[in-house]
């Protein structure tokens, strides 16, 4: 397994957000973490990244327990994190945003350069000097992914990539995820948009009230409308 999470518990102050969460992502796999807002999807990704102050449990990445490491150490091991609210550096240009993400190349992970990112997102290449704050939502979503790719991750944590985008851009986003998969990246994405997740994922887990309620292949989920309706209610 590329990434293996077990018995993960997380807290915000007195609030117990995640209990006993378990997840696996295999090499080269795209796994979707589905659930409604507030179910604990983002907290799961943030916990893996060490962005939640209080967490316990085992998080094993490429055979190494990272549950006590700090955020930047986790990132340097090859875990890339793309936050749901994009968090573009609005005062920095496109190129400078990419520069912040730059890390040395890593064995066993696709290597990215600025030009390679621009070939994946041709739009960005045409606005290298533009300030992050002057970009549309869709462009910012591309930039935040490109910025994380510059760190040459072997696994990408993608938090709600389709949120707030026009249906047309969402379709483009699906293509991007598939392109990254072809490069050999593993992806764990959180989504509420089942329609979108269905197109790109190999497997799915469903989270509700901080607990994993279902894990299986996409086909198993499709075959189990009871689960789908209970937690996703499409």
């Amino acid at each position: 397994m590329k990434l293996s999470v077990s018995q993960l518990d997380s807290f915000y102050g007195p609030a117990h957000i995640l209990s006993d969460v378990a997840l696996d992502v295999g090499a080269g796999e795209v796994v979707a973490l589905l659930g409604r807002n507030g179910a604990g999807k983002s907290t799961t990704l943030r916990s893996i990244m060490g962005l939640v102050p209080q967490r316990t449990g085992r998080i094993v990445f490429e055979g190494r327990d990272i549950s006590t490491l700090q955020t930047h150490e986790i990132a340097r091991l090859g875990l890339g994190y793309v936050p749901e609210d994009r968090r573009i550096f609005t005062e920095l240009t496109v190129e400078e945003n990419l520069m912040v993400g730059r890390q040395p190349p890593r064995k066993g992970a696709p290597a990215w350069t600025r030009d390679k990112v621009f070939s994946l997102f041709p739009n960005l290449g045409e606005m290298r000097g533009r300030l992050g704050g002057r970009m549309s939502g869709g462009e910012q979503q591309m930039l935040t992914i490109g910025r994380t790719l510059m760190g040459n991750p072997s696994l990408l944590l993608l938090d709600e990539p389709s949120e707030g985008l026009a249906p047309k851009i969402v379709e483009e986003m699906a293509e991007v995820v598939l392109a990254m998969k072809r490069e050999g990246l593993s992806v764990l994405l959180s989504e509420q948009n089942l329609h979108f997740a269905r197109k790109i994922s190999d497997r799915a887990s469903i989270i509700e009230k901080g607990r994993i309620r279902f894990s299986g292949t996409m086909a198993e989920l499709e075959a189990n409308p009871g689960i789908r309706d209970a937690y996703l209610a499409v």
Partner: peptide, 8 residues
């Protein structure tokens, strides 16, 4: 309804 489950 941004950020809510479809049922909600």
């Amino acid at each position: 309804t941004a950020g809510m489950a479809p049922k909600e």
